[in-house]
Amino acid sequence: PPQTPIRAAMTSIQMLRVDLTSSGDQPSTNLATYFKHCTVDPTQDVLKRLEMLGQVFSQRFGQAAGPHCVVNGRQRFTLGVGLYYKVMEAMLKSEEKRLSVQNFSKLLNHSTFHTSLLACALEVVMATYGESSFKNGGFNGGGGDTAETGVCFPWILDVFNLAAFDFYKLIESFIKAEPTLSKDIVKHLETCENLIMERIAWRTGSPLFDLLKQEHEGGAAEQVETPAS
């Protein structure tokens, strides 16, 4: 029978849990092999970063959704880590094929790459649970009827102190690396992209300005427009 929105959400949550619980919240053997092939093995940094970000995420999730949700926050984070490892492995496999390289030391020791990837994975988990949704009204999540709307995008960027542009850079590769994402979740990530491009990326201090300046100094043929105030 046709699925009601609630039934559809329950199904996608169930699929996410089954899919990610089986892969666990540790690096797979393949992923550990990529780590070992690095000139500098990133394993300890990855684990330390996850420990630190896990505490920040759970605490902020509790603040945003209510103290009774700290456990939910921890559960969301565990699922997010499972997706983070899964997508990372898929990305490295595709990069290995594309570049004929096995040593990803630079990328895997790039803190922003890891933080962005984890943020994107957590955004997918929260969107799957309906906690990060644009349906309840607008950019700031509006006054939705679920307590968790306080974690609507771009909440995760603030929690991880992550530049929107760095999150943006990851989205397309994330979608490409995880073909099992549902239509709704892809749509959600696309809306995040649009929000970033329309507003957030142009905030003061965004790395986008540096990039534009580099392009300009790099002698790009056409004159670069100064960013709108």
Binding site: M91, S94, E95, R98, L99, F104, K106, L107, H110, T112, F113, K169, L170, E172, S173, I175, K176, L181, S182, K183, V186, K187, L189, E190
Partner: peptide, 21 residues
């Protein structure tokens, strides 16, 4: 099943996007 518009070129992957090529 989705209609996401992929825009990255063949020579643009996650390594280039994070300046690790």
């Amino acid at each position: 099943s989705h209609d996401y518009h992929f825009g990255l070129e063949e020579h643009e992957g996650i390594s280039e996007l994070f300046d690790c090529d």
